[in-house]
Nucleic acid binder design. Structure first.
Lengths: 344, 344
DNA sequence: GTTTAGCACTCGAGGGGTAAGAGTGCTAAA
DNA sequence: TTTAGCACTCTTACCCCTCGAGTGCTAAAC
């Protein structure tokens, strides 16, 4: 059996209908939508064929048809129009990033907020990982007796979130020299793969201060360690309860639980397939708990190098076209915004 | 009409029952619970009285009785036992904070997680605010040409999250001198109320660098500005869907929405009543959206000075005794943990 | 061969009726 | 003041029925 032009049109029509209404679609409705060019009986025959082919499902005998995951797959791969986001929507998204924002966290939070509020689904963001970033400068600053703050300046910003112990008599002059030494040795290396030679060189210079030495290495390594599930930022959890798919409170709870725990999200977001945009529809998802919703994720880059992910979770009958466009646009916006950011 | 000893026992019993089962409690059940010392008819008479007094409510004629908010108030104020948390529970909470943790955020996240998982309600944390904290040190560190990072060292830790513009020819020597000047002037002042004199002194020294000067002031002020709703950390959202109170999906959605938006939470958490522990029961809440749940909040202090809040949101029939004990214990734990923390 | 009209059939949603059960309030007696 | 007894109320669950939407099949029309 083959997919004739008409069958495709019918399928497309059913999917559109179902995405909008969440109600099984009957032959009459489709006939009307195709301007009665064909009778409902004809449509019925085609629908029967489409069901045989696995594109449609029937909740029960006397109900209309519902698209299968396979149908959505076909839809996403071949039927998505080239339509654009409306100027209003673009403006809405841009407005979110207008105000000057310093913190990566804040940017991430804004990103999920805008995604969830514009798509009406649940949005998630995995912040960027920085293993390919080049170290420019390492600074130690005294923050009290016997304590110094490590500041790491890189291509894409800086971090300073580790306080290390130093000898109690370490004055700012001493720290200044130590900083210069560290900068000389680590400068130009990347966070992810600084050479053993560098490590050895520093170890030699800092012999007698093993603890401080290790703490400094930890600081550097920290930002290359895989991001954990706690790093994922979410928004729009309650959106899902709007959809009849989750009218059943137990289903809703199950969904919320898996989302809130973030383990599953982490698994999905850290799976790096190097795809610009990835769409995983219902049963395609290797993770059981996600089998009755769809997940669209997009990678974003900062300065073309390191990357994080943004994503949307929604019912399988989600508005794929819109979600994909939104993620695409926002991925690019993120690149712009993060490009020259300085971070704390 | 007065609250006889027996009436109090009956009320107590009804509340306990209802907290556990969420089902209206009948006279027979109470009679059985009091070992049939009184007949169900007697209990019935008392229950009628209690209803007259506003402590009980009847969903409908032939149902049992349900405690009113007023009853919970009486219960919380006068009937909470002196029981302790079980060793298991204590161990569970302690375990959460065993691992060495650097970031305030991480501590906050752990705190909400432990609260929500041990109480089975929704937990929230408002991170500490630092307006009474003393400035010890102000440092500028170069992070690139024309850019410097402001590091603020205080009594309770340090921050470094603002990059300011400095003259392109500002070398580390120059920044070092500037740092010393800033430290000399701001050192000893508190974040919240550094004197105009200090500001004027710095302005004079930095005349010609108005931009950098303002940026530095902003950095200092930033940590005293009221924390926003985005700072609130949540956990256990899905817990609420476990309770029959939220069996109705619309109610569940409404709840989730208000919680997720955080505006309402912010309002509640930033209301500073200087109470160690505050319990707001159902209709007592000035905020409409929270009228059918109860909110318990506790203040925590760090080094006895600045403070944040932790809280639990649950159905009005929540297990107040346990929630209060958990918050009390965790407030103290937080104090311990934050005490000597160094922060990024 | 394809399309269509016609029709019988299926199944779920929704409405009404009823029986069961839980709990009450009242009365009168202890 | 307490209690036994009883009539009354109201909800819940269940069943039955009807209605309507939608189907699949058949036979006729194109």
């Amino acid at each position: 059996m083959e997919l004739s032009e008409r069958k495709l049109r019918i399928l497309h029509s059913i999917i559109d209908n179902y995405i909008n209404t969440a109600m099984p679609v009957g032959s009459k409705a489709i006939a009307a939508e195709l301007n009665m060019v064909f009778s409902s009986a004809t449509i019925r025959n085609d629908m029967n064929d489409l069901e045989q082919m696995g594109f449609l499902e029937q909740p029960h005998t006397s109900a209309g048809r519902v698209p299968s995951d396979r149908a959505y797959r076909l839809y996403v791969d071949n039927m998505l129009g080239e339509g654009e986001l409306s100027p209003d929507e673009i403006a809405f998204m841009d407005r979110y990033f207008k105000r000057r924002i310093g913190q990566t966290e804040q940017v991430m939070q804004n990103a999920v907020n805008v995604i969830s509020s514009i798509t009406k689904y649940t949005a998630m963001v995995m912040p960027p990982q920085y293993s390919d970033v080049m170290i420019r400068n390492v600074q130690l600053v005294s923050v009290g007796i016997g304590k110094a703050l490590v500041i790491l300046v890189t291509d894409v910003g800086h971090w300073s979130d580790n306080v290390i112990s130093v000898p109690d008599d370490a004055d700012s002059e001493y720290l200044f020299r130590l900083s210069n030494m560290l900068t000389r040795i680590f400068g130009g290396q990347t966070l992810g793969h600084f050479s053993d030679m560098a490590v050895d060189a520093v170890r030699k210079e800092m012999s007698g201060q093993r603890e401080a030495f290790n703490a400094i290495l930890d600081t550097i390594r920290k930002h290359t360690s895989p991001r954990g599930r706690d790093d994922i930022v979410l928004s729009g959890l309650s959106n899902m309860l709007e959809y009849p798919e989750y009218r059943d409170i137990n289903k809703a709870r199950g969904f919320l639980q898996t989302i809130e725990t973030k383990d599953v999200l982490y698994e999905m977001l850290s799976h790096n397939d190097n795809m610009e945009i990835s769409v995983v529809i219902g049963s395609e998802n290797p993770i059981d708990a996600m089998r009755d919703c769809s997940v669209v994720t997009a990678s974003y880059r900062v300065n073309g190098v390191e990357q994080g992910k943004i994503g949307v979770i929604g019912p399988t009958r989600m508005n794929y076209a819109k979600v994909i466009k939104v993620l695409d646009y926002l991925g690019k916006s993120l690149n712009e915004i993060m490009k020259d950011k300085d971070d704390g």
